[in-house]
């Protein structure tokens, strides 16, 4: 059932579950030759924003915001790449100097010689490496750099463009040491609000990753999510009941002041699992569980989308998840990730007691820096339609925190997140 018609980046808001018309999804997508193919788009050059919940205005705003943050970051990368190419085309044997324009093509040693502070591309903590250059001595790679700033000290620090921009395309004569995903990108009219949103997202993925890949060291605490929802979450409770679904939440070890929850939605026999996650302030457990639950339901609904059906046809033969969609499909069709991660249903416990509101709230960016013990880097660059709207799009880079990988991790089951 369609509730709105898409125009000018307006999302389509629809009610996919006829028995629960108050449960809504929103989706909006853009196509451009500036975008690379993605799994969720079935290999098309599209970026997609989506959200789930019960209020049309809220899910629409969040879906549109997700598209804008991704689009703004990709176009910022394209602008930086074009700036570097223009400088090279103008006889730029001398690349743009640090401090002018905010981009530069060189290797890490050249920045060091010029006294320009830069993230070390050889440091594994700097971010996900570009698979095409795995094993190459990273400091000597000629690549595009862009200027960021340390969130705490506000001092300039230059970062590889591949760590800053989603789907970075190296300029001629350059390679890339890093290849960033969407984790850590956020859009808002207020730059501080954008940075806060990005910091919670990075922290969430890092806490999920740590617990999934080493549950003995970072043990999850499983509990029934339905008993920990806000009193007003009647549509969500009704949807789970009418679909015959259970929802198991996992409280993940988190730094003081934060709360991280993964939710698995599944059948009574623990088949057909999909996962969502959420990280937020430690005193908001009910809302954290609710948001993670909606995310898991959105992914579950997507398991029957045409691109997912085609992807499963391939994946069921290869058994080799390679994209976010693949990971969700593998979990839904072929893996009891919940029991692997948190033990059998008999391991369920009571929901954690709500934490008290801290006397002093350092905010998520400082909390993330304390979690990693490293300065968080902010790259504040936006281009394309989001810039035309006056949005700020930031990329946060948190050395020491890592997103969930799509490629296999040797000796480990594929993680269950799409």
């Amino acid at each position: 059932m369609s509730v709105s018609t898409p125009t000018a980046w307006a999302p389509e808001v629809f009610a996919p579950w006829p028995h629960t018309p108050g449960a809504l999804l929103a989706r909006v997508a853009a196509r451009s030759t500036a975008f690379d193919a993605t799994g969720a788009g079935g290999g098309a050059s599209v970026l997609i924003g989506s959200a789930a919940g019960t209020t049309a205005a809220d899910v629409g705003r969040r879906a549109r915001g997700e598209l804008m943050e991704r689009m703004g970051n990709v176009f910022a990368g394209r602008a930086a790449e074009a700036e570097a190419e223009a400088a090279a085309g103008a006889g730029g044997a001398r690349p743009p100097a640090a401090g002018v324009g905010g981009v530069r093509t060189c290797d890490w040693f050249a920045l060091r010689r010029d006294g320009v502070p830069a993230a070390d591309p050889a440091d594994p903590a700097t971010g996900p490496v570009d698979g095409a250059n795995r094993g190459v001595p990273a400091r000597g790679v000629r690549q595009l750099w862009c200027r960021g700033r340390a969130a705490g000290s506000c001092e300039d620090i230059w970062v590889p463009a591949g760590a800053a921009f989603l789907q970075h395309r190296p300029p001629p004569g350059c390679a890339a040491t890093h290849r960033a995903g969407s984790t850590g990108v956020a859009a808002h009219r207020d730059p501080d609000a954008a940075a806060a949103h990005a910091a919670w997202e990075i922290l969430e993925r890092d806490l999920v990753r740590r617990s999934w890949y080493d549950p003995l060291r970072h043990p999850p605490v499983p509990f029934d999510a339905r008993g920990a929802l806000p009193p007003g979450a009647s549509e969500l409770r009704a949807l789970l009941h009418r679909e015959g679904l259970e929802a198991t939440a996992l409280a993940l070890p988190a730094p003081t002041g934060a709360e991280a929850v993964a939710v698995c939605v599944h059948g009574p026999d623990r088949t057909r699992q999909t996962f969502g996650a959420r990280c937020g302030p430690a005193h908001d457990l009910q809302e954290t569980v609710e948001r993670a639950c909606w995310e898991a339901l959105m992914v579950r609904w997507s398991m029957s989308a045409p691109v997912a059906v085609r992807a499963w046809d391939r994946l069921s033969r290869t058994g080799d998840p390679r994209t976010g969609l693949d990971h969700a499909l593998w979990t839904f069709h072929a893996q009891d990730a919940l029991t692997h991660w948190a033990g059998p249903a008999t391991a369920l416990r009571a929901p954690p007691a709500p934490a008290s509101r801290p006397a002093r709230d350092p905010g998520p960016v400082a909390l993330l820096a304390a979690h990693t013990g490293r300065e968080v880097i902010v790259v504040d660059r936006c281009a394309g339609p989001p810039a035309d709207e006056g949005l700020t799009v930031v990329r946060l880079i948190a050395p020491g925190a890592s997103p969930l990988p799509a490629r296999p991790v040797p000796g480990q089951l594929p993680h269950p997140f799409g």
Partner: peptide, 25 residues
């Protein structure tokens, strides 16, 4: 920079899956 053509997807939207774009995706 000349901005690449960009369009909103409408007809194919129901084809797509709906959390993350991983670094390798």
């Amino acid at each position: 920079m000349e901005q690449p053509e960009i369009e909103q997807v409408t007809e194919e939207l129901p084809e797509f899956g709906l959390i993350d774009i991983p670094s390798e995706d």
